[in-house]
């Protein structure tokens, strides 16, 4: 078994703070010799999970916890907020043809996370949301 390395951070809401999480991830990934292509995709997963946690929490001073667990084989990204939660099953799937003529062009974060990850678990209730994303690195 490869040993795991772990990084835990508590992020405050300041502009572009997701870039700090990405920077930490990059440092770990380079140490582990992870291919650039996988790192780039992990950037998308981290970015979308963190911005959702801040943006949709409904809190006036949200904090977001993020935890990376990595070995040569895989990366686990865990993102937690303490906001109002949501029902992932009720989120509409975005479609480019519809978005083109709609006033609401957004709504792509969950789809990107689902598509770029190897596994995505969303647990959400009125105490917040916990997202666990698995990304295979081989």
């Amino acid at each position: 078994m490869e040993p795991n390395i772990k990084l835990k951070m508590t992020l405050p809401r300041i502009p572009d703070i997701e870039l700090v999480a990405i920077e930490g991830l990059d440092r770990m990934a380079r140490h582990m010799g992870i291919p650039e292509e996988k790192i780039g995709e992990a950037h998308v997963l981290v970015t979308e999970a963190v911005i959702n946690a801040f943006e949709h929490s409904g809190q006036s001073r949200p904090v977001v916890r993020i935890e990376f667990t990595m070995n040569q084989e895989k990366l686990i990204i865990f993102v937690r907020d303490y906001g109002k939660g949501f029902d992932p099953g009720a989120v509409e799937q975005p479609d480019i043809d519809k978005k083109l003529s709609s006033g609401h062009k957004r709504g792509w974060g969950l789809k990107l996370m689902e598509t770029m990850s190897d596994d995505l678990l969303i647990e959400s209730d009125d105490k917040g949301t916990r997202i666990t994303i698995i990304k295979n690195l081989k």
Partner: peptide, 10 residues
């Protein structure tokens, strides 16, 4: 090298 879905939706 980094984008987010909100930026790209524009």
């Amino acid at each position: 090298k980094v984008v987010n879905s909100i930026g790209i939706s524009f």
